[in-house]
Amino acid sequence: MNSGTQPLLEVNNLSKHFGAVRALDDFSMVIQPGEVVALAGDNGAGKTTLIKTISGVFRPSSGEVKLKGEPVSFATPQEARDKGIETIYQDLALADNLSIGANIFLGREPMTRKLGFIPVLDRKKMADAARDTMALLDFHVSRMEAPVSNFSGGQRQAVAIGRAVYWNAQILIMDEPTAALGVPEQRKVISLIHQLKKQGRGIIFISHNLQDIFAVSDRIIVLRRGVMAGERKISETTHDEVVKLMVGG
């Protein structure tokens, strides 16, 4: 196995058409382990369409997606998730009345036995896993039983990311993870992305905020009307150049 150079994700000539609308046209990209790729582009450029086609929400009209060299085809987002591609949507999909641990395990709760025979939820395992996972993200919580409604926006984002990390997502896709947050919270999310990168995961994130993109990404891909308008290493480009690519100047 050539695991040293094996890309985590390959997208080859992917297209998604809605009737006559070419929302995504002949798009290709590669993501290496530990790489953060930002997707930018004007409204309607096809960013959301791209991530939904990768994560099993849409079936591609043509083209292929390869995960660690294997061609994959997902009928549902659940299938993508089972293969380690997790999407974190802006609404985060948390049950606000439940603890971090309960949210991480929602739908797959661990059970244990009380008095040797009564099956009960294994709250200790959930709390321990939550604490470990959040520590892995450098996020320290002391009251593990508190419902996540008690946390701030950035902390809740961390919980959603923590859930993906616990279930061993190799590729995390985030659609505007910082859009709804205040400045300090945005910085927390940026630091979370740094942590994920250190762990060798691949990250795709959509953002309209160039500041964030330059703070955290390795590469930026600019989409325009469904096609790739350009791809740059962050270290080799500027805000001005990216804006020009977006508007097609």
Partner: peptide
Amino acid sequence: EHVKPQADHAD
């Protein structure tokens, strides 16, 4: 290098 998240409000 990175921002350390603050203790949670639930504390």
